[in-house]
C-alpha cells in the first residue's frame, strides 16, 4: 500500500525530538520527551491504518472508511500515556520536594562499586587471605604465630588456652 511521506516525516521528527529529551537528566524534560514520543507513536498507528478514509461510523458517509482497529489501539495508548505521565509528574514533584531539583540522580551503590574498580579493590564482602593458616614446622616460628596455628582448632569453648606451657 502507498505510504504518506508527510506522516512518516512527522513520526521521525517527533520520535527524534522525544528521544533527545528523554536522554536528559531533568525529569520534567524526560516527561515532555515521553509525550512527544507518544504523539509520534500514535501517528505510527495512523500510518499503520492505511490510507485515509471516512470516519469509521457506519452510515455517516459513502466513502471507504478508515481502519478502526489502529484507531482504537491508539486511543488506548493515548489514555495510558495520560495516566503514566500524570504519575511521572507526581514523581517529578516529589523529587523536587526531596532534593530541591528534578534531576534524575545516579545510583549511589553503583558509584561505590565504580570507586572500588578505580581503586583496584575487591568486593567489600571478600576476605583477603591473611596469615591464619595452618603453619608448618621448619620455619622459625615466634610464639605469636604459634597461637595463630591454634586458631584453626575447633575448641572454641576455652578461649583462654592461649599458652598452656
Amino acid at each position: 500500500m502507498s505510504v504518506d511521506l508527510a506522516l512518516i516525516i512527522a513520526i521521525g521528527v517527533l520520535v527524534a525530538c522525544g528521544t533527545t529529551l528523554v536522554l536528559e537528566r531533568s525529569l520534567t524534560r524526560i516527561l515532555v520527551g515521553f509525550v512527544l514520543l507518544g504523539n509520534g507513536v500514535n501517528l505510527f498507528f495512523i500510518v499503520a491504518s492505511g490510507p485515509p478514509g471516512a470516519a469509521p461510523i457506519v452510515g455517516a458517509s459513502d466513502e471507504r472508511m478508515a481502519d478502526p482497529l489502529p484507531q482504537a489501539m491508539a486511543l488506548t495508548a493515548i489514555v495510558i500515556t495520560l495516566g503514566v505521565t500524570a504519575f511521572g509528574l507526581a514523581l517529578a514533584y516529589r523529587t523536587w520536594q526531596l532534593e530541591g531539583h528534578d534531576d534524575v540522580q545516579d545510583d549511589v551503590e553503583d558509584a561505590l562499586v565504580i570507586r572500588r574498580a578505580e581503586r583496584d579493590d575487591t568486593s567489600a564482602s571478600f576476605d583477603e587471605v591473611d596469615e591464619s593458616l595452618p603453619e608448618e614446622e621448619g620455619a622459625d616460628l615466634p610464639a605469636v604465630d604459634d597461637e595463630v596455628t591454634r586458631e584453626n582448632d575447633e575448641d572454641h569453648e576455652s578461649p583462654d588456652d592461649g599458652d598452656p606451657r
Binding site: 495512523i46 491504518s49 485515509p52 478514509g53 470516519a55 461510523i57 478508515a66 484507531q71 493515548i78
Partner: peptide, 11 residues
C-alpha cells in the same frame, strides 16, 4: 488535526 484528516474523529 492529522487524526481528523486521516478519518479518526474519535481519536
Amino acid at each position: 488535526m492529522l487524526f481528523v484528516l486521516h478519518g479518526a474523529p474519535d481519536l
